[in-house]
Simulated scan of single mutants.
Amino acid sequence: MVNSEPGPAVGPIEAKWPDVRRIAVLRGGGLGDLLFAVPAMAALRGAYPDAEIVLLGTELHRELFAGRPSPVTEVRPLPPYENVHEPAGQPFDEAEQRAWFDALKPVDLAVQLHGGGRNSNPFLRKLEPRYLVGARTPDAAEADRWLPFRYYQHEVLRALEVVGLAGARPVELEPSIVVTDADRAAAAPVLDGLPEPLVVVHPGAGDPRRRWPAERFAEIAAKLAASGRGVVVIGAPDERELVERVAGMAGPPVRPLTSLSMSALVGVLDRCSAFAGNDSGPRHLAAAVGAPTVSVYWMGNVVNAGPLGRSRHRVLISWMSNCPVCGVDCTREDLPRCAHDDSFVATVPVDDVLGELEELLAGR
């Protein structure tokens, strides 16, 4: 039954289920993947205010939510599980998996925000939930209420449409993360001595095809630092080589930061007056804490993961539709990924990115 009450919605808002005390939300993946699910979890909190909401995610997700207000009651890191969570070097252990599922029961409502359901719907069924909602591809097992999975849909809006099937109306359209005093204190030492305004540059991205060339990030960092702005280049420990290369090409006083805790990262992003980067987890976190952003996107990723507004979030789009090496059509979701990692976004000019940054720094 569709809820006929007026209010915002992405798709139908079905009737809420009664007596829902524990909700399990499946969303693995990286930092950006988690943030796309935050508005949906906020909607669930609004619809089921007394329920426990358990996020089935990763240690990274637990680190982000630790010590800060959020819609989530608890984060349970996923066990290694084929085609759902496959951390490098960790074997699948059926006994560990059984113990993990048993420890989570009972679950009243399972919410599948982890793709098209081929593997994630059966995974959640092992929790024996009373109700299951999610998206599904044609070859995936059905949920109690489901919507068709289509690749080209914004991740945040898909998640909101899924929770609408459980009676949850949107309360926010873009992710938001609360910044704490502890975050600001953690950031203070690593930013000591840098002038204001601060610009944060992140040259990385999980998919190398989404990375704007390192030398272009170095060029904008150098020009911003030369004009008296504080500039830091951030990245995870596994991005150290890239970060140090960009900072090295830019030259002093550009500062590389690759050993930040999650709390310090949130604090650094909260301090910045503008963020420059690719379509990446840190870019989405920057926006979620309220920082203005300038981002380089491949056109397909704008559909799935682009910011909705443009007053504080500027997007420079590469319209390349074919692999620059082999020419395969990279817009076709039904074709296998080619073997090449060459950038799809190298066509975006430096002057365009720098121009948008200058506008944001000037308050325009």
Rank of each mutant, 00 (worst) to 15 (best):
R229F: 11
S318G: 05
G206T: 07
R118I: 12
V231W: 04
E52C: 00
L127F: 09
A182W: 00
A141I: 05
A218S: 14
G327E: 13
R68T: 07
V75D: 02
P237Y: 03
L257K: 02
H114K: 04
A143Q: 12
A221T: 02
P189S: 11
S295H: 06
V294S: 06
G28H: 05
R158K: 15
E172Q: 15
A274K: 00
E86F: 06
C338M: 04
A187C: 04
A103G: 12
P197Q: 11
A47M: 04
V111Q: 03
L198T: 02
R21C: 06
R245D: 15
S321I: 02
E358R: 14
T58E: 12
R27F: 06
A47Y: 09
W17Q: 14
R22P: 12
G67A: 04
A103I: 05
S176C: 05
T293K: 14
F36E: 03
G355K: 11
T293V: 13
M299N: 13
H202Y: 12
P80W: 07
V348N: 05
S343I: 04
T73E: 10
E219D: 15
E82K: 12
V2T: 15
V133L: 08
A140V: 05
E356Q: 15
S321C: 12
R255S: 08
P12Y: 03
A287G: 13
A250E: 12
V10T: 12
P213Y: 12
K223V: 14
L127G: 02
L285D: 03
